[in-house]
């Protein structure tokens, strides 16, 4: 199993300093205050699989997501991508750059995740330029068109601005941008929570298809257990920054161990398969 392991999160912690400025502390004589947003969390994800982190808001899901892609330095523990420590200061810039290309992220809000002043074509070609992945203008254009088609949009959409698209289409653009650098690992931070239910299914199906076609590894952050059931191979349950339960999807949904997981499953709204046209299998 461990030879297929792609990402290892090892005793990861994040402590936020919430203290008042020192002068206010001096006057009120309050000590420094910290919030342990993520506390000693460890798990790993196999190559080509989806790991879902579920938990209520404030449980530290998104903080883990940011640390997993290198956007937030953990206060403790490490993130290993294919054996490469993401936060190792001794490694060279070039090596970090190489690792960074292999990581991408799809964000929650389809509105804030695309720069409103940039055309879609430019949004998609930026990673290509940064990582020098195409050697000519025409190759770059071809790759942008290929990306648009890969996510079910048309080539002419490259000339349009983000505000000309619907939420679902914008999420597709976001996914296309994430795919541009040909990553192996994508963190999806609640990619469907801002979308209509019918559009959610389309986006999830797209993500599944891409995983099959490209062998992507996903870390899926969500609070929606219906989504988890469709997407994830393994699930980790987070509560106040601690991983309290971790199982394969089937066994976690069918026989949850902790009270908290049971409560999460009970409180999730059910969509029975008979009443909707969406197939979640």
């Amino acid at each position: 199993m461990s030879e297929h392991e792609f990402i290892r999160i090892d005793r990861l912690s994040q402590r936020f300093d919430l203290s008042d400025p020192w002068i206010a502390r001096l006057i009120s004589r309050r000590p420094k205050q910290f919030l342990n947003a993520v506390d000693n969390v460890s798990f790993n994800i196999e190559k080509g699989k989806t790991y879902a982190l579920v938990g209520e808001s404030g449980s530290g899901k998104s903080t883990i997501a940011l640390m997993a892609v290198g956007l937030l330095r953990p206060t403790g523990g490490s993130v290993l991508i294919d054996g490469h420590n993401l936060y190792d200061r001794t490694q060279s810039q070039l090596e970090h750059r190489r690792t960074r290309r292999r990581l991408q992220m799809v964000f929650q809000s389809p509105y804030a995740s695309l720069n409103p002043r940039w055309r879609v074509g430019n949004i998609l070609s930026e990673p290509l330029r940064v990582f020098s992945l195409t050697d000519s203008q025409s190759a770059e254009r071809r790759r942008v068109h290929e990306l648009l088609e890969q996510v079910g949009l048309s080539q002419s959409d490259a000339h349009r601005f983000p505000h000309e698209f619907s939420g679902g289409q914008r999420q597709r653009i976001s996914i296309a941008r994430a795919l541009a650098s040909r990553p192996e690992f994508i963190v999806c931070d609640e990619p469907t929570s801002a979308l209509d239910v019918s559009v959610q299914a389309q986006v999830l199906n797209l993500l599944k298809r891409l995983q099959n076609d490209l062998g992507l590894t996903y870390l899926f952050i969500t609070h929606d257990l219906a989504v988890v059931r469709v997407m994830a191979h393994r699930i980790g349950v987070l509560k106040s920054g601690r991983l309290i339960e971790e199982e394969s999807t089937q066994s976690l949904i069918e026989s949850p161990q902790s009270e908290y997981t049971k409560m999460l499953i009970r409180s999730a709204p059910r969509i029975s398969r008979g009443t909707t046209g969406i197939s979640f299998t």
């Binding site: 940011l66 892609v69 290198g70 956007l71 970090h96 750059r97 960074r100 290309r101 990581l103 991408q104 992220m105 964000f107 929650q108 809000s109 804030a112 995740s113 695309l114 720069n115 930026e126 990673p127 940064v130 990582f131 976001s174 941008r177 650098s181």
Partner: peptide, 13 residues
């Protein structure tokens, strides 16, 4: 704080 800036940081700008 918007996510497009995070996306730009992600590719190492």
């Amino acid at each position: 704080e918007k996510e497009y800036v995070k996306a730009a940081r992600l590719i190492g700008l």
